[in-house]
Design a protein around this nucleic acid. Structure first.
Lengths: 163, 163
DNA sequence: GAGTTTTAGTTGCGAACGCAACAACCAGCG
DNA sequence: CGCTGGTTGTTGCGTTCGCAACTAAAACTC
C-alpha cells in the first residue's frame, strides 16, 4: 500500500480524546446545519446549495469564467462541475460560450435568469443560515471561525463576501 | 440596523459577517477533513465511513439492535439505513434476525466478519483522523468542540467513545 | 373486535454520483 | 513539422440516492 515513511515521523497515532470530540462534533453539527439550510431551500422550491454557489461565484467574478477556475474554489471535481453545468444550462441559468484563447474549454456565462435566481435564493438562504447558526453570538462565531480555519489550514481569510 | 425582535414572525435576518464566516469555514473545513479520511479508507480498500459507524454502533450496543434505534443516533433516514444494511448484509458484515417482540421489524446483528472489519478499519481510520486534525492542539480542540456543540444545540456530551 | 391511526421498514423509479476511459486541444522539444 | 506529455472537459456505466408510495404489524379508539 503506502510506502513507509523514511523516519519515525508518523507513528500511526490514535487521536486524543479532544480530537475525537472535535471529529464527532464537526460531523454532526456541519451535517445538521447544512441539512437545515438545504431543507429551507427545497421547501421554497429552490435548487440545492451547489447551484447557488456556482451562480454566486459567476456573479462575483463579474465576467464569464472557465470551469477550471470555478472548480478549485468550489472544492468540486471537474466531472461534477461538468454535469452540474449541464443541468443548470438546461434550466437556462448559465450558458456555455466559446473561448477563443483555448479551444479545449469554454466560458460559463451567467444569464439574467441565473442572476435573478441567485438573488431569490439568497432571500431564503440568508434567513435560513441565520436561523441555523442562531445558537452562538458574534464573538463566539469569530472564535469558532478562527479555530475552524486553523484546523483546515486556512490562513487569515479576509472574506467579506456572502457564502 | 435591526432593533426589532418582539414584533411578528420571522424578521428574515441576514446573518452577521461573523456568522457568515462560520458558515463558510464550517462547510469548507468539514468537507476537507471528511474527504481526507474517506480517501484514506478508500485507498486502504475499505468501505466508506457510514459502514464503520453502523458497525461501531452495533458493537457498542453489544446486542442486536433495531434499525430505528440506529437511525436516530446516526442522523440517517430509515430508507437510507435500509439500503445500507442491504449492502452490508450482502457483504456478510451484518445479519437481519427476527424480532419476536415486534414482527414488523427485525434486529441487526453484528457478524464476526463485521467485527473484524470494524477493527481493521479503525487501524486506518484513527491515524487518518489524527492526521486530518493535526493542525490544532488539545486545548484548542476542546474549545472548538465546545463551540461546535453549542452551535449544534448539543448539551454537555460526555462521550468517551470512539467516533 | 372491527375500524382507524401510527409506526417500522422496504421498494420502484428517475435523478445524481464516482470512477475510469476518453476526445480534444495546447505546449514543449527534437 | 511530427512526437510526446500535460491540461481541459466530457461521457459510459454501474452504483447510490431521494422521494413517494407501499406492506405489514402494532396501537389506539369506540
Amino acid at each position: 500500500m503506502r510506502t513507509q515513511q523514511p523516519a519515525l515521523k508518523t507513528p500511526a497515532r490514535i487521536p486524543s480524546d479532544a480530537l475525537q470530540r472535535v471529529w464527532v462534533a464537526l460531523g454532526r453539527v456541519s451535517q445538521g446545519v447544512q441539512c437545515e439550510v438545504e431543507t429551507a431551500l427545497k421547501e421554497a422550491g429552490f435548487p440545492e446549495l451547489s447551484w447557488y454557489t456556482v451562480l454566486w461565484e459567476l456573479e462575483r467574478a463579474g465576467t464569464p469564467t472557465r470551469p477550471k477556475d470555478l472548480a478549485v474554489p468550489l472544492f468540486i471535481l471537474p466531472y461534477q462541475l461538468s454535469r452540474l453545468v449541464d443541468r443548470m444550462e438546461k434550466s437556462g441559468l448559465v450558458k456555455r460560450i466559446a473561448c477563443k484563447e483555448d479551444k479545449r474549454g469554454h466560458l460559463l456565462e451567467l444569464t439574467a435568469k441565473g442572476l435573478a435566481l441567485r438573488k431569490a435564493m439568497w432571500a431564503v438562504y440568508a434567513p435560513a443560515m441565520d436561523e441555523a447558526l442562531k445558537r452562538i453570538n458574534d464573538s463566539e462565531a469569530l472564535e469558532l471561525a478562527r479555530l475552524l480555519n486553523k484546523l483546515g489550514g486556512i490562513e487569515h481569510v479576509d472574506c467579506s463576501d456572502k457564502a
